[in-house]
Amino acid sequence: MTSSPDALTATRGRALFWASGICAAALVLVPLWMLTGNPAVLRGHPLLPALLVTAAVVGLLWGILLWRRRSTSRKRSVLRLVGAWAGRVAVLALVAMLVWLNPFSYRPAGAAEAAAGVSVVDEPTAIVMAPEGGRASKGLVFYPGARVEARAYLDILKPAADAGVLVVILKTPLNLSLLDGNQARGTMSAHPEISTWTVGGHSLGGVSASSFALANQDVDGLLLYASYPLDSMRDRGGLNVLSISGSEDGLSTPEKIDASRELLPVDATFVEVQGGNHAFFGNYGPQPGDGEPSVGRDVAQQQISEATVAFLTQREGR
């Protein structure tokens, strides 16, 4: 016994209706979950909250439209039906992308310390740590790692600000520095009092910092946290480079760091933190795929901060 064309159309319509309802609900619930459940979303670059609000509004309007048309059954050609299902799959892929973009939020390693002698200003697209008196002549622009909140690097970079360096931690679009690799230029333009600029970054942020340093001759230094460049910088003259890595890093492995020596200037300095892993270069908790550390976070971060301060303060600009 075969189904009538009208019954088949009704069955397909109900299936598409429920699929649409699931998609509309996901577009509303996932953004609400991220906006209310993760403080890093609202503390970061405004692009992600704007994207989430837009998705939620679209999902809400779609849900209202579905409810008003709940009793309507429309005949669709095979081509239109395939297109409708493909659209629902695309929406679910978008929702999955939003979930993936949920950033690693700042997790203080211990009791939060007051930034004595340092001014901390939280701007829409950056966090600025200025030394006491605001008379710095050296500056660091830092790109966070992929999907890591900018605030996660405050503790490890604060000693540099204490030592007299202007530190600017960028809030990158969607927490992906590659979406605006030239973002450091705005910071440099906003602080003409700085005569010696270093760009740096953690993981993917270090890739962006490397590309920026390669293309901009007014950058004097490159600071890499568990990172390496994609292109050769061997012929980039006048650039001081410090690469700090962890011996137990499961993402930017020691083998990858060692291979990066061929891409960096011959006088680049390499420091390996024994027992440190990828997530020790910021305070945002464990990271999937990372190695197991064999040393305390505080011990590793003290070494990272000390090497950073020495690099930023002991060299002279052009």
Results as ranks from 00 to 15, higher is better:
residue 224 L to N: 03
residue 301 Q to Y: 11
residue 13 G to Q: 14
residue 81 L to T: 10
residue 151 R to Y: 07
residue 4 S to F: 05
residue 215 A to E: 14
residue 31 P to C: 12
residue 166 L to K: 02
residue 281 F to C: 09
residue 98 L to R: 03
residue 85 W to F: 06
residue 41 V to M: 03
residue 236 R to C: 08
residue 287 Q to E: 13
residue 174 L to Q: 05
residue 167 V to M: 08
residue 310 A to K: 14
residue 242 L to S: 08
residue 192 P to I: 12
residue 144 P to H: 01
residue 265 P to W: 05
residue 266 V to N: 12
residue 25 A to F: 14
residue 136 A to T: 09
residue 245 S to Q: 04
residue 138 K to I: 04
residue 113 E to V: 15
residue 234 R to D: 03
residue 124 P to K: 04
residue 19 A to N: 10
residue 315 R to L: 13
residue 178 L to M: 14
residue 40 A to F: 01
residue 14 R to C: 01
residue 22 I to K: 00
residue 274 Q to I: 12
residue 1 M to I: 08
residue 68 R to Y: 07
residue 224 L to F: 06
residue 96 A to E: 10
residue 158 K to T: 14
residue 72 T to Q: 11
residue 269 T to W: 00
residue 55 A to V: 01
residue 199 V to W: 03
residue 235 D to P: 00
residue 40 A to K: 02
residue 293 P to Q: 03
residue 188 M to E: 09
residue 191 H to T: 03
residue 36 T to V: 14
residue 266 V to F: 05
residue 143 Y to C: 04
residue 80 R to L: 12
residue 302 Q to D: 12
residue 231 D to R: 11
residue 156 I to H: 09
residue 287 Q to M: 12
residue 113 E to A: 15
residue 188 M to S: 08
residue 18 W to L: 13
residue 11 T to A: 15
residue 289 G to D: 05
residue 241 V to S: 04
residue 292 E to D: 15
residue 140 L to H: 06
residue 271 V to T: 12
residue 89 V to W: 02
residue 201 G to I: 01
residue 102 N to F: 03
residue 26 A to G: 14
residue 226 A to E: 01
residue 129 M to R: 06
residue 153 Y to I: 02
residue 161 A to S: 15
residue 17 F to T: 01
residue 136 A to Y: 04
residue 287 Q to G: 02
residue 66 L to S: 11
residue 27 L to K: 07
residue 52 L to G: 01
residue 127 I to E: 00
residue 71 S to M: 01
residue 195 S to P: 01
residue 173 P to L: 08
